[in-house]
């Protein structure tokens, strides 16, 4: 369909003013929140959209997993092959059955869709102003860990919380190299498509638990 390409472009070029386009990147004005303020803001924003947030010391999270997940009746836990996965595989209680995302999805799709209760993942950071987790899935923690299991537990380092999405994109120079997929997650999956009534867990996780560390 290169004919369509030429037709569309020549129709547009006939009317476009100039060739050299000019960028308008402006550094956003931030409020200058302290780390604790950012933690407080992200917690407030997350909770407003039904996210569950806990502030823990660095190494407490595994204790939280071992206490809370069995208490809530979850058994099948999905982890990646990164540091978190390694720790969970070693330290998880016997009652939790750990699945590691080590094979390509095609080999175990049914199990992922039908068996896994909870996924535990890291995050790249957080955004205080919108209550968002910033996620760059990797081969160690692939994309579907964030979408398919009914419960998603995410670990977030307090140091990595930015004030705004714009600030993060610019300061971390995202435009230099974007990953295959990057994702902002702000609360559990939801819909208001039935008579404007809010309901959670329509396709993605019904519950999002954020453990803020440090």
């Amino acid at each position: 369909m290169s004919r369509a390409r030429e037709q569309i472009l020549s129709a547009l070029q006939q009317y476009s003013e100039n060739g050299g386009y000019r960028g308008i990147v402006k550094t956003p004005k931030e409020e200058g929140l302290s780390k604790e303020d950012r933690v407080a803001r992200i917690t407030q924003m997350m909770e407003a959209v039904h996210g569950e947030v806990h502030r823990l010391l660095d190494r407490e999270w595994m204790k939280w997993i071992n206490t809370e997940l069995p208490k809530r009746g979850y058994k099948h836990i999905l982890v990646g092959s990164g540091d978190i996965g390694k720790i969970v595989n070693v330290e998880a209680m016997d009652s939790l059955q750990i699945h590691s995302y080590t094979a390509e999805i095609e080999e175990w799709k049914d199990q992922l869709f039908n068996q896994v209760d909870v996924s535990i993942t890291s995050t790249r950071g957080g955004i205080a102003s919108t209550g968002s987790l910033v996620i760059w899935p990797t081969s160690a923690e692939p994309r579907l860990m964030y979408f398919v299991p009914p419960v998603h537990v995410a670990l977030l380092n307090a140091e990595d919380i930015f004030e705004s999405f714009e600030q993060m994109v610019i300061e971390q120079k995202w435009s230099k190299e974007m990953p295959t997929n990057s994702l902002l997650v702000s609360g559990p999956s939801k819909t208001a498509d039935i008579q404007q009534v809010l309901a959670y867990g329509v396709h993605g996780p019904k519950q999002l638990v954020v453990l803020i560390l440090g």
Partner: peptide, 24 residues
């Protein structure tokens, strides 16, 4: 649109599945 600070998901797709990646 809906009076939300942000939607639950904002997905940025830049590539198909790369060698070594397990889904996508």
């Amino acid at each position: 649109a809906t009076g939300q600070t942000i939607t639950t998901y904002f997905n940025m797709i830049s590539r198909p599945r790369q060698p070594g990646e397990k889904d996508g």
